[in-house]
Design a binder for these strands. Structure first.
Lengths: 147, 147
DNA sequence: GTAGTTACCTACTATGTCAATAGGCATTTA
DNA sequence: TAAATGCCTATTGACATAGTAGGTAACTAC
């Protein structure tokens, strides 16, 4: 019941790419790592997963880096969680032969509302929301980077 | 982002105690373990935590077992989660010196609604709700045990 | 064409938690 | 007194997380 740094870093990396890829420029992993104070090598793993999930495309070479493959409005928090988190929403899987049924009843009641609430939230929140929020929170600071 | 069996078993055990302690009789760990198909030894650990949290009191000896220490209406799901889960609602702890602030902004946005929604739910749901739901779901079956 | 930069991939490790298992001690009651 | 039960500590295997390390492939500026 906690969010891994993998998810956090992935979200941060995607948002960083959105914010700093003005004009279609690709954003390099070293740059992201330095800006966000994330281990470069670890970040590479996460970017690999994000690329395999189809969120970003990569370009090798001296001016290479990452660019969004789809619009920020089309990437939901659910998408990112599914791509980076192994056991997200791991509700009850097999409710066969569980004593007198107490366990399955409790699991149902427990997950019933949490699942629907959480899903509605993560399905609604988009990468564009994160980017917008970040722009608002620190107005103008990123103009230094976006030349 | 999943619920451990510790929490699940703990919730099941508490509910089992509520349902089977009719007339103030104590419910033994072996009985719970057998009914709910939980490892007896593992269940002991969980019952220990529940006792230390003040939810139940124990009685040793040949007719010993566990009894609720407080009313089922006074034990919320949040209470149980806090007692049995190590990292429940492990939001952002230290947001000092996080690059250009992107991480803290994203963390805030991420947890903002999840925390409030989840807390409202887990604070509201009570042990009595679980017990009632279990009684409803299997009407009369437990009369076999509650003599 | 070459050098430097970057992404790509695989392997490895350290740490921590989970989910049990095991065994012995303490206590209470039939 | 014996059986049943709770109490407590230690140990273990499996697994995920959070990295670290090193080499290979591709691209581009010069």
């Amino acid at each position: 019941m906690k969010v891994s740094t993998r998810v956090e870093y992935g979200l941060v990396a995607l948002t960083d790419i959105v914010i700093h890829s003005d004009g279609g420029r690709s954003v390099s992993a070293p740059d992201i790592a330095q800006r966000q104070k994330i281990s470069h090598k670890y970040l590479e793993h996460i970017l690999l997963l994000l690329r395999q999930a189809g969120f970003i495309t990569a370009q090798k070479g001296i001016r290479g880096g990452y660019v969004l493959a789809v619009s920020p409005e089309d990437i939901t928090l659910s998408d990112v969680l599914n791509a980076l988190d192994n056991n997200i929403l791991a509700g009850l899987d097999k409710d066969e032969e569980q004593g007198d049924g107490l366990r399955s009843v409790i699991n149902s009641l427990f997950w019933e509302k949490i699942n629907s609430d959480l899903s509605r939230y993560t399905d609604t929140l988009k990468l564009s929301d994160f980017a917008e929020q970040c722009r608002k929170s620190s107005s103008g600071d990123w103009d230094l980077y976006v030349i």
